[in-house]
Structures are given as structure tokens and as C-alpha cells.
Design a protein around this nucleic acid. Structure first.
Ligand SMILES: [Mn+2]
Ligand SMILES: [Mn+2]
Ligand SMILES: [Zn+2]
Ligand SMILES: [Zn+2]
Lengths: 137, 137
DNA sequence: TGTTTTTTTGCAACATTATTGCATTTTTCT
DNA sequence: AGAAAAATGCAATAATGTTGCAAAAAAACA
């Protein structure tokens, strides 16, 4: 309950209904959320635009990170590492279940080192694995 | 020149202007292409719908594969491995340059084995690395 | 090669998703 | 409480993706 305010304050964000509600969703969700999930779970009590802007703000501040997907959706999940404004270092693997379609942050599975050819400089690496999750197995 | 027909025939696709032109783009492009890139490079001589459908067809046949992105775009690139209809096995890492924004298939950098927690079954793994490419270095 | 059959295309209409400016409301600061 | 700053909702607009169907093109056939 306090955690919400904590996170917002720590990031110098004004505390608003929308931000509390949306951040709450992330804190309670086991997996990643898409824009559509958020609209659904808030009874459309916020304007679409507000949701877009809130998500963008959270990403900018390093509160959530987004997860690459092959289809055209953007998924967001809480940053559990120490991400800062404009500088994420989420080093974990993401898992998308083919059955239940949930996306899970595998916080304990870290992205392995990958050797790149000469001249390439790595800044960030995203690993997305799809298959069947432990619930659907 | 013949390569085009070869690929189309091998996949039992009728040879049309659109398919030839679009496949040609992929064969000549160093990096991945988005829908928008294709429209741009064809002088809009094809309907948008045709481009969508052609890309979908190529993916279905295993001629091109798509690459996960964090923004809301879908990128496509030639399958250089032996992909079959409905069954891709592109095992390589993708690199997105922060500077020139090109996406490159690193055909010689393969995706490392990743150990998942119990109960999770891996089907596919995508690795997308961003940073600075060798041209922009 | 000419004719039939099959496939692809373009168009139009529609749906979904995302962005921007601006006035109003809410939150924060003093 | 009042002033200043920030966030929100609304409306308009843009961008992106989907579908049905008739016309056109390609493939198959004779
Ligand atoms: Mn994550
Ligand atoms: Mn590739
Ligand atoms: Zn599952
Ligand atoms: Zn580059």
C-alpha cells in the first residue's frame, strides 16, 4: 500500500489516481501487461491517452520496462533491478507461454554473455523465449 | 535474377510483380525491413494490403522471419537457414543499431543455450541486442 | 496457343492503435 | 488557502491493420 507512494515519490512523480491504479496493477500482476490489459483492468476509468502517457512516464523513469514481441504488441513489466531514469538494466530473460499467453519476467535467469563480431558494441540484450510455462505444462 | 523465381517456385507461389519486387528488396537489403520500408522502396506501386499479404505469405512459407522489437514495429528479414512452411529455425542473434537504426541478422552468432527453471519448456528463443554497429562505430 | 480455373490484386470500407494541442482539473509548493 | 506546476480529458488527426468482394493476372489445362 505504501509501496505505491514510495515508488512514485522516489521517482519524483506526482501522485495521481491514474498512476496509483496502474502501478498497482503491475505490482499485483504475475506477468507483463499490454496497454489493452490496463484499459480492461481499470474499467476504462482513465482516458486512453492517459494510459499511454502514464506508461511512457514509467518507462522513462525506469519503473517499468518493455519487452520485445514478434506480434505488434508492446508489453510492459515492472523493473525489479535498480533501473534509473532513462537507463534500464534489466538483465533477465522473458518467457512467453504459447498456451496461456502470459509473459513472465524470469528474474533469476540472466542473459548470457554473447560474443559479437568485431566493431559491434553491445548496450542492451533482450532474450525472449517462448514455449510452455510451468502452469500450463 | 533467377534466384527470385527459384525461391518463389520452390515455395509453390505464383510469380507476380509484387512478390518479385518485394523479395528482391529483401535479397538486396543488408538489414531487416519494416512494412514502411517496403512501401517506400516500391514507390507505392502496390497497394498497402498487397504488401501486408505478401509479407504474411512469405512468413508462412518460411522465406522471411520476423524480429521482435521494443517499439511497435514488426521487422522482417530473409531466412538464411533452411526454414520450412510454418516452421522456422532461425537460430541467430539480431542486432539493432542505436545510431543508424538498422537491424542486422547476425547469421554467425547463434543463440546460446539457456537453462530454464523446472517446468518450463522452450520452443523458440529470440535474442535482440542493441548498441552500435560496425559501420557507425 | 486459346480457354478455363485458380490465385492474386486493388479498392473501399471499417477497425484498431497511437499522437498532439489545448482547456480544464488536479496536485504540489509556498 | 492561494499560486504555480503538472496531469488529465477531450477532440481532432494520424498511422496501422483487417476484411469482403469484384476485377485482373497467373497457372493449369486442353
Ligand atoms: Mn522483465
Ligand atoms: Mn534474422
Ligand atoms: Zn502458460
Ligand atoms: Zn549503425
Amino acid at each position: 500500500m505504501d509501496q505505491l507512494l514510495d515508488i512514485l515519490k522516489k521517482n519524483q512523480l506526482s501522485v495521481t489516481e491514474g498512476r496509483k491504479k496502474i502501478l498497482g496493477l503491475f505490482l499485483n500482476s504475475p506477468g507483463a501487461l499490454a496497454h489493452a490489459d490496463i484499459e480492461k483492468n481499470t474499467d476504462a476509468s482513465f482516458d486512453r491517452v492517459t494510459v499511454y502517457r502514464t506508461l511512457q512516464t514509467f518507462v522513462d523513469k525506469g519503473i517499468i520496462h518493455n519487452i520485445p514481441t514478434t506480434d505488434n504488441s508492446i508489453l510492459y513489466a515492472l523493473c525489479k533491478d535498480n533501473c534509473e531514469a532513462g537507463h534500464h538494466h534489466d538483465n533477465h530473460v522473458h518467457f512467453i507461454c504459447d498456451v496461456c499467453d502470459k509473459t513472465i519476467c524470469m528474474d533469476h535467469v540472466s542473459v548470457p554473455e554473447i560474443k559479437l563480431p568485431k566493431g559491434f558494441k553491445q548496450r542492451q540484450a533482450d532474450v525472449v523465449i517462448s514455449g510452455v510455462c510451468s502452469d500450463c505444462k
